[in-house]
Write a protein that binds this DNA or RNA. Structure first.
Lengths: 338, 338
DNA sequence: GGCTGGCACTCGTATGCGGTGAGTGCCAGG
DNA sequence: CCTGGCACTCACCGCATACGAGTGCCAGCC
């Protein structure tokens, strides 16, 4: 077990390194933080911290930098989430209040997060699986062609074109629309399959094929589109990484382009609260030198999607976590209102 | 006027420089292209080309690289758009055919373009202004709350929530829906304002306010959403720029984040065919060392939106132009089918 | 007049070499 | 257990040198 002072030394190292981006030495530490001991003592502490794997030296005669393990300890034990200032909170609220629809909410959230944290922001669209159906609309586009429009309680809209096996009259369509909505409106997506199972039985034989087609398309849409969309922004902030980094930035950009990777990344974070994944804790190789701070957000009590930021492991964890948490909270409010 | 051989020298310089990313000297030129003359002669030609501003030397004792003006001449006079190979065409078709809806079409197009050109791809969503209305749907969400859903001929869907001044019955809603659609379905967006102008007159006095509100929201949607969306991809390709300049990449990333900038960029290209903007021809400062190749695409004869790629001025113009043109053509086909 | 070979010149890059200093580990003493 | 002192390491900086690709120019040739 590390003594209290050694933990303080670790905290100081993390803070200084995050600030200066340069390895921090024992002398500088004692000067900038009043630890009440001499550099020599700090050196001993540092040697101990290095033995335990919390810090490392890039070169023999350089200062120390925190390792992933060091950041982990810092985040778990030493850091307190830094709440935003009042003006910041107001700015967030004002900015998000201006959104006109779901796309806009997500887009604004991304910009906001990227600006607040000066890092790459990732915002997942509210998931379909956990949403409820607000309305299903069927539109006749041609005699044997129907457009299915699905509207969720979070304001998301999905549409799908359907080729019917047989022509389908306007009255039948209206009938189907009415019956469908009376069954599924307000229900959770996961319940829909059960609810519509016996629907074709109420129709004429000639229409039954089409009804079946429409239903299966609806179910497909519910399931397939579970594959969730997301939006990212602030990639320009990657250039702040370090002066060395054309090599570091590339795999990160590549990873960010793969929505699948990002979705998995957000999905892995099971913690109901905020999750911080540091460096090699991220499964994806390209993100081994980055940390991901993510948190769920949602209109009600339950989280419907996640958002977060991706930045260098050497990031301002307290500030970032504060910003992420605050933004998630406000986005939840906005969604609840609409 | 430049002699034929000098033009050939310029062409050779562009080709070599694009290939090697290094300034090209007179000796190397004569070795790799059989110009039929000696290095000394080429040197004279190069001096002339430099006087005219087509090429420049980064340092006194280095080879030459093309200037923006040089690339311009190359693109206008010396390059032929390189058609794609048959397998490439098949791959495009197959990949795009798999798309399930408009979002998917755009997403796949971006990926495709980025992969084919190994550069940053930008695809604009089919514009609202030039589209026609396929259907307007009105859904009652609450007694005095209506959702407006607008579907375009390109499959794009826009929705908008409306708070009505007074409760609005289902029958009135159905009535409005029917009258609205009979007037605007199949018409161009630009014509809609005229077409609905006198619509409120046919309604009861108590409903007229609501009808008016719905109509003005519709018109707003038509106008405001003219502000068009777009999707970008392949930003990781920016890292191929050169090993030298992480400084160049930053402003480009920043510019790419600003949708407004990109939209203006695509919008400026008035040429009905393909447009190439080279280096400083781009108004935006951050893109002064990049070239933009863009072209319109559309389902019918008319272009409904644009797509293109952004890359270093030192790009493979014939190949890029070929890829952009081919992709635009196929996307147009896909849109026409759906 | 235009092309060619030769030649001197420029200048950016690579290489080698001390000097400097931040930072360390260790040790003896308080 | 902390502290001051001390020798040691090694990345970084500046500088001086060598190298060589590439140029411009000129005299000669077709």
């Amino acid at each position: 077990m590390l003594s209290e002072r050694r933990l303080q030394v670790l905290r100081a190292i993390v803070q200084d390194y995050v600030g200066t981006e340069e390895p921090v030495g024992s002398k500088a530490l004692t000067e900038r933080h009043n630890l009440g001991v001499s550099p020599a003592t700090v050196r001993n502490d540092m040697a101990a911290l290095e033995d335990e794997g919390y810090i490392a030296q890039p070169h023999t005669s350089a200062g120390r930098i925190p390792t992933d393990k060091g950041y982990r300890l810092f985040v778990d034990k030493l850091a307190e989430v830094k709440p935003l200032t009042a003006p910041e909170r107001r700015a967030i609220q004002n900015f998000l209040d201006g959104a006109v629809d779901l796309d806009d909410v997500v887009a604004r959230t991304v910009r906001l997060l990227a600006q607040l944290t000066r890092q790459v922001a990732v915002v997942q669209y509210p998931s379909l699986t956990r949403s409820t159906v607000r309305h299903v609309e069927l539109l006749s586009m041609a005699p044997a062609r129907v457009m299915l429009v699905l509207i969720t309680d979070t304001g998301r809209v999905e549409q799908r074109m359907i080729d019917c096996p047989a022509p389908f009259g306007e009255t039948s369509l209206a009938d189907l629309r009415a019956r469908l909505n009376s069954r599924v409106a307000g229900r959770r997506f996961t319940d829909v399959p059960q609810l519509v199972q016996d629907l074709p039985e109420g129709f004429e034989a000639e229409d039954r094929g089409t009804v079946q087609t429409v239903l299966s398309t609806l179910l497909e849409t519910l399931v397939e589109r579970t594959e969730e969309r997301l939006m990212i922004g602030g990639t320009a902030n990657l250039t702040r990484f370090g002066h060395d980094f054309p090599l570091t930035i590339r795999p990160v950009l590549e990873a960010l382009e793969e929505q699948v990777v990002l979705l998995k990344l957000l999905g892995e974070a099971k913690d109901p609260g905020m999750t911080v994944r540091i460096g090699h804790e991220n499964a994806h190789e390209g993100l081994n030198s980055t940390s991901v701070v993510s948190v769920g957000y949602g209109s009600g009590g339950e989280a419907v999607a996640k958002l977060g930021v991706v930045g260098p492991t050497r990031m301002d964890y307290p500030g970032t976590m504060g910003a992420v948490r605050a933004v998630a909270r406000y986005v939840g409010q906005i969604l609840a209102e609409s």
